[in-house]
Every structure is written in C-alpha cells, then in structure tokens.
Nucleic acid binder design. Structure first.
Length: 749
DNA sequence: TATCCGGGGTTTTTT
DNA sequence: ACCCCGGATA
C-alpha cells in the first residue's frame, strides 16, 4: 500500500495506532478510504488479522471494505478479519456462547415480521385492544427498550416508558414485553435487538467471556459511528477495555437513524467517554462540486446540535443546483424523467449514474410509471425485499423449523401451507397442549393422541404427517449440504408444486423466485467451497440469511439503470446526477416530526441526499400531491428557504422569491396558490373517523386570505381570516358519518 | 376449513 | 389506492 495516496490529514489518521481515536469525516471526504487504509496499515505493522474487529453498518459495506483491503495487502490475510455488521458479529459470538445464555447454537433469529406476528398473538391472547396495541408500535417500544438494555423485568420501573405508555394507553406493556420475551426464549429464538442486548449481557455478566473477547480483539474499528445506539456503544466500550484501541469513524451531520434507536450523543461525546482520544477531522470533500458542497453546508448550518467542521471542495465550481416546482406529483415525475432523458442524450450521462431520491418508498410509484412509459431501464431499491417475499419466507421457515424444532413462528407460518386442513382451532389446541406439557408444538403435532388433543382423526393424520416430514427434514439437515437439502425441502414440503400449479403470472413468479433461492444457496455453498470449507450445511446459510437485507442482494449489476431509492438507502453511495424529489412540508420534513430534534434529523437527511451528488443535483417539489387516496395541497419544504441562493438556479417555472422577513417563500400572484393545508384532527367522533377533511388557506391576488375546509372532496365551508381563530367546526353529516372537528388558528404567512 | 366480500384503517425511514 | 381483517357463506 502507498500512503502517498492519502492527503495529510488522512495519512495521520491512518498511521495513528494505539489508543482511542475519533475520525470526523465530512461527506465525501474519504471516510471509507481512511478506514480501509488503517486496517491495511495495521496488517502491515504485523497485527494478526483475527485480532482486528471492524464493525460496519451493512453487510455490503463490510464486503466492499474487505475487497478494498485485499487490494492493498496480501489478500489471504483479509479472510481472517472479523468484519461485519454489529448484528452479524454478535450473532456469530452468541452462537458460540449459546449455552450460557439459555439458547442452543441453532437459535432462530426472528425478523420484524416474525416479531410482529408473535406480538399480535400475545395481544390477542391477553384480550387487549388490537387498535391500541398495534404490533408495529409495540415492537418499536420493545426495540427502543432493548436498545437501551432494558429487559422486561425493568421496563415497568422506568418512568419514561410508563409515561409514554400512559400517553399511548398501552398500560399493559410490561406484561406484553414479558410474555414476548418469554415466548422468544421458549422458541429458542432471538429478535434483532436481542443480538445486541444479549451480547451486552454476556460481556457484563460473564467475566470469563468478557476477558476472552477483550483479549481476542486487539484493535476495534467502527464505521458510521454516528448511527450506533446505546447497546452498540456499550459493546464497543466493553470489548475495547482496557487498552481502548478503538477507532470510530463517522459524521454527526449524517446521523439519520434515531428512529431505530441510534443516539447521536455517542459520537458527540466520544471525547468524554475516552478522555485522551485523538480527533481527526476530514474536511476536504473529493466527491462533489463546490456548488453542491456549499449548498449542503448552507443547509446543515441551521442545525444547532453538531460538531464544528467546515467541509470544502477544491473541485470545479460546477453547475448550480436546480430548484424545480411542479403543479403536481405527476408532473414532477414526468419532468424529472424528461430531465433524465436529456441528461442521457445531451451529456451522455449513463443511466446508472443517475439517482432519484425520495423520502418515502411510496413516492417511487409515480417515477416507476413514467420510466416504464419512456422505456428507461431502472431499478427500485427498498420495498419488498427478496427474502421477505411470501414464497421465499415460506421456504426459509421450513429450513428454520428443521433446524430449530422450537421455532413456533416458523411452524405457524408453514403448518398449513401448502394447505393441510389445519386451521385456527387446531392450532389453538396445539399451542395450549404445548404450553400445558411444557413442550414444543411440533412435538405435540407428532403425537396428538399422546397429548389428548381433541381433534378429528383426519386432523390427527395431517398433524402427524407434517411432524414426521419435519423430523425427516431435521435428520437430513445435518448430513446433506445446504443446496441438496434446500432442493429436497422445497419439493417435499410441496411449496414448489404449489407454485408451479398456479398458472397465473404471480404463481409463475413465485416458482421462479424459489428457483432463484436455490441458485442463491448454491452460490453460497460454492463460495464456501472456494474458501476451503468442504461441507456447508443449511445451518450456516440460515445463520446468514436472517441478517441479509435488500441492500445486500444485488451487487453491482452491469446494466445501465436509473436508481430509485429512499434517502436512507442512499447513504454511503454517490451518483453523478441526483434528483431529490418531493421537497414539501409534511413529506420532507416528514409529517411525523414534532420535536426540534426531529427536524434536525430531517435536515441531516436532506444533507445526506444532496451530498450524494457528484456533478449535478436537482431539487423538486409538487404543489399538489396524491396521498392516501386524496389530492392534497402542499407547501414547499422549509429547508428550501434555508439553502444558499447563490448555489441555486431557478427552474423554468415561477419560483419562490427570496424569503421576506424570514417568512416562507412567496409566490407569484396568479393564479390562486394554496398555502398551508392543515389536516383537521377529530376530537370526538361518533361513528368512525374521517381522514380526508382538511383546511387550506388560499392566497389570492387581492392579498386576502381565505380558509377553506375540505371534506370528502368538496369545499365544505369557507372562512375569511378573522373567523378562524380557534373555532370548533361541527359537521352533522359528511357522507354517512357524523363527526366533530377542532381547528386551531392558522398562522398568517 | 376456505373463500369471497365489504368496510375500516392506513402510511417514514430499516440493521 | 391498498391492505388487512372479520364475517358470512359455500
């Protein structure tokens, strides 16, 4: 490796070896480069590869980093590096230590869908209101608690959780959490967050294990440190002791995962955690033009909560960033696709160098439609990933249940698919019997008579047949390789037959997907063979598959396709040309932002989006957007007025003029431009709620403001400005429903 | 037990 | 516009 390829700051960061180190790496400043060079440098200095632990955010990042290191040093060494996501590294260690944690090494990892389904059952069993205890909400609460290392036994003691539960009316959360955790363990399963929490518990409670792993990992490096949560922080801290040879790399300005428990204070207070930490700041951006970097800087300046740094670019000044308003989301999509065509035709920009970035996955539809119409190749990231598809998940659940007979979630999913005439009633009895006899549902199914199950003889037969099939698969699993096993399992189970029998296009897709799964498993086995592992059982595949995400699926594909993805998914990537669309209030920033910190996170999110662009960046918004089945008027994102106008070029359409007295952008007087829609909140409703009532104020050339109340697609009432200071509006009949709405004063623009 | 129909609720981002 | 659920029906 050649250290001359680094700039001075980078080189110093790379060659600093011992002791804690914080590398603050601005967008596009060569963060990954520093990390890879540092690992390569450590290897060159004679550090054993298996003494280095490198934690990344995605599997893909880990893989790419490995490849890059392999190009710098002897490729053989990189194989033995401990490199992966927090979750996968923890899973690996936990399998090793499973016994001491009350698990077997074949424990299942429940994905979000499994967890939600388990929670749903718990809520039902406890007779709680399913409207209040929504699985997503409940899982989120549990996840947040686990990220802070709060187990079910402590949950009820924490006031903050209690308060939140009071607010959400989820008073029974402690019991739900307890039951959830108990059933996870009974199923010999862990969820995502358990991987981190159990790892912490292992290190805290088991001195021998702690000392062992502390001595194994001589050097620890963490990528994207700004997105770590408390559990991850603690894992790093405990593993690094007592030498504290820990290097963390990150950018507080790109912290965008707080909804997942990420805690930006981890990076902000690194120096308090490690008082003698060395700090390096990488501030030169090599990726983007000056205009893009300056624009991004002007935005992020508005955040209060950040580490000081000044990112700059010595690249060309470049084109100004375009700000494009469109009348509706539809036109936005059409015009953006037009611009892409133009980029392609006039600048020769390859389709794969263009990305359309949006805040929510739902926005992809409009662009997808237009791209298809224009015959432009594209690829949408996100949405339903391969491993979440029904048929794939079904197949994997067969594997999972064969590996871990206690995995009830897998059993419930597949016991009646393909249909075996085993319905809800039978399953309830099965579950009760299993609880009563303290055994697994599969065991009861294998011997319904023995457990006095009151089911018909036909059902009995179905159960025993299913159970004996699963036992056969279980046996086969240890002796055959993953590919052979999978092939056999999807045939024996009947899911392949089921898919093939379905002659609809969807059915054919499913059959193809199953074939694709087999191919993936085959590749997995091949890879392992190349690594010198001559036998790869299904267990090994299962261990990895649970932690795969759609980010990891398709590596670089050679075809030239436009990329469509959420801003979150775009983190760490770069494109020559970037379109950031839907820059509207309540969308970007999201409508769910309430606190000032939430807005700061959204601002960082936009910062991330802008800094993905190398050469050109386009920002767009629509004045009307079709959402949740209705057309809504929108307002331009507040972020737009925070941008340095020096870096902006006005679009062809009338643009907001510069802000007056710190207000929002104003618009040309004609025609009518609606502003500031407010969705009315029902305070009391007889019957059910109505979602599509809204208020808009209308700004007309005469400079008078009218407020219109829309409901069920029509204007219900119009008020002039003086009338709307805190009034209650009552509608007796809107459609078939009666409801009462309260409406707070509108801010005058 | 499976399937069809209608109504109600729903929407952020994801390792 | 879509998905999910519950209830009714085959």
């Amino acid at each position: 490796m050649n250290l001359e390829e680094l700039n001075e700051v980078q080189r110093e960061a790379v060659t600093h070896i011992d002791g804690p180190q914080l590398v603050i790496a601005g967008a596009g400043s060569g963060k990954t480069r520093v990390l890879t060079y540092k690992i390569a440098y450590l290897l060159e200095q004679g550090v054993e590869p298996n003494r280095i632990l490198a934690l990344t955010f995605t599997n893909k990042a880990a893989r790419e980093m490995k490849e890059r290191i392999a190009r710098l040093v002897n490729a053989d060494k990189t194989r033995y590096l401990w490199m992966g996501t927090f979750h996968s590294i923890c899973a690996r260690i936990l399998r090793q230590e499973a016994q001491s944690l009350g698990l077997t090494r074949d424990f299942s990892i429940y994905d979000t869908a499994d967890s939600k389904s388990l929670l749903h059952r718990i809520v039902k069993d406890k007779g709680l209101d399913e409207k209040i205890y929504k699985p997503g909400l409940v899982l989120n609460k549990i996840s947040m608690a686990k990220n802070r290392l709060c187990g079910p036994e402590n949950y009820g003691l924490i006031k903050a959780y209690g308060d939140q539960d009071k607010y959400d009316r989820t008073y029974e959360m402690p019991a739900v959490y307890q039951s959830y955790q108990r059933q996870l363990r009974e199923a010999n399963a862990v969820d995502f967050d358990d991987l981190l929490m159990l790892m912490c518990q292992l290190l805290q409670n088991n001195a021998a294990a702690r000392l062992y792993y502390q001595s194994v990992f001589q050097y620890i490096l963490v990528d994207e440190y700004q997105d770590t949560n408390y559990a991850q922080y603690l894992i790093v801290k405990l593993l690094a002791e007592p030498e504290n040879n820990v290097t963390v790399v990150g950018d507080d300005a790109q912290s965008i995962y707080s909804f997942r428990g990420a805690d930006i204070t981890n990076i902000l207070s690194f120096q308090q955690t490690y008082p003698h930490a060395r700090v390096d700041k990488l501030e030169q951006n090599y990726r983007s033009t000056q205009n893009i970097v300056n624009l991004a800087n002007s935005l992020i300046e508005h955040n209060k909560h950040q580490l000081r740094k000044s990112v700059f670019s010595n690249n060309d000044r470049g084109d100004k960033v375009s700000l494009l308003p469109y009348p509706s989301d539809r036109e936005e999509a059409q015009e953006v696709i037009n611009l892409i065509t133009r980029e392609h035709a006039m600048n020769g920009t390859g389709y794969n160098e263009v990305a359309v970035l949006y805040r929510t996955n739902a926005q992809s539809r409009a662009f997808e439609g237009e791209l298809r119409k224009m015959g432009i190749p594209y690829r949408i990231y996100g949405g339903m990933s391969f491993y979440q598809r029904k048929e794939i998940k079904d197949a994997i659940c067969y594997f999972r249940l064969a590996a871990n007979p206690r995995d009830n979630e897998a059993l419930l999913r597949i016991i009646n698919f393909p249909t075996r005439h085993i319905g809800d009633t039978t399953l309830r009895k099965l579950s009760e019997a299993a609880q009563a006899h303290n055994t697994t549902m599969l065991e009861v199914a294998s011997n319904p008579k023995g457990y006095d199950l009151s089911v018909t003889s036909g059902t009995q037969q179905s159960l025993t047949e299913f159970a004996s099939m699963m036992m056969d698969l279980s046996e086969m699993m240890d002796t055959t390789d993953a590919y052979t096993f999978a092939q056999h399992a999807i045939q024996r189970s009947g899911i392949l037959r089921e898919a093939k029998a379905d002659l609809t296009p969807e059915g054919q897709d499913r059959a193809e997907n199953l074939e694709e799964l087999l191919t993936a498993i085959h590749e997995f086995v091949d890879q392992r063979t190349q690594m010198g592992i001559d036998f790869t059982p299904m267990h090994d595949f299962l261990g990895e598959v649970a932690l795969l995400t759609d980010q990891d699926e398709h590596t670089d594909d050679p075809t030239q396709r436009v990329t469509l993805m959420t801003v979150h998914a775009a983190k760490g990537l770069e494109f020559k040309v970037v379109f950031i669309v839907g820059l509207e209030e309540d969308l970007f920033p999201s409508q769910y932002c309430v606190r000032a910190e939430d807005i700061e996170e959204e601002r960082r999110l936009l910062y991330v989006a802008i800094t993905r662009a190398m050469n050109r960046c386009y920002l767009s918004f629509a004045r009307q957007r079709f959402r949740n089945g209705t057309f809504n008027f929108t307002n331009p994102s507040r972020f737009l007025r925070e941008l340095d106008r020096e870096c902006l070029r006005q679009g062809e359409r009338p643009l907001p003029t510069s802000p007056q007295r710190g207000g929002v952008p104003t618009y040309p007087a004609s025609p009518e431009y609606p502003t500031r829609p407010r969705v009315l909140r029902p305070v009391q409703s007889a019957g059910s709620t109505m979602h599509n009532a809204q208020v808009t104020s209308t700004w007309t050339p005469g400079d008078r403001v009218f407020h219109k109340v829309f409901g069920a697609g029509e204007v219900l009432q119009t008020y002039n400005e003086n009338e709307v200071d805190k009034i209650d509006i009552q509608f007796d009949k809107v459609g078939k429903k009666t409801l009462m709405l309260t409406y707070a004063k509108l801010e005058r623009l």
